[in-house]
């Protein structure tokens, strides 16, 4: 029962943060700001969901793979975001700053 509650909580958190990241990717004004949500909010969303998955799978050897996935995502996602942001910067894309206030 306790495990089920924990699963629900982590799932809810994961879905929430992934939702935020999707909104951010759609709403924010330029590459750099979007990269923020892509690398961070999405990583947290994925991480929480994967914890839920690990809990749902229970104590098995395969559960280790969930944690491997978690570590991969936590290492590769920011690296990819950095690569993308750097590519944008080196291509000379100017960061957005609010102008109308």
């Amino acid at each position: 029962m306790l495990v089920s509650v924990a699963i629900v909580v982590f799932l809810a958190g994961g879905v929430f943060f992934t939702f935020v990241s999707a909104v951010g990717v759609l709403r924010l004004p330029d590459v750099y700001t979007r990269a923020h949500t892509a690398s961070q909010t999405d990583t947290l969303g994925a991480g929480l969901t994967l914890v839920a998955v690990a809990l749902a799978l229970g104590l098995e050897t395969t559960t280790i793979k969930t944690f491997l996935l978690l570590i991969f995502i936590f290492i590769t996602n920011p690296t990819a975001a950095h690569a993308i942001a750097r590519a944008a910067y080196e291509e000379g894309i100017e960061p957005w700053e609010e102008t109308d206030d």
């Binding site: 990717v25 590459v31 979007r34 892509a38 969901t49 995502i73 975001a81 993308i84 894309i93």
Partner: peptide, 18 residues
């Protein structure tokens, strides 16, 4: 920009994994 697209695909990929 291309970077926007790559970024979106990166998010999609993470979603797929999840």
């Amino acid at each position: 920009t291309t970077q926007d697209r790559v970024l979106a695909i990166n998010v999609l990929g993470t979603n797929t994994v999840v």
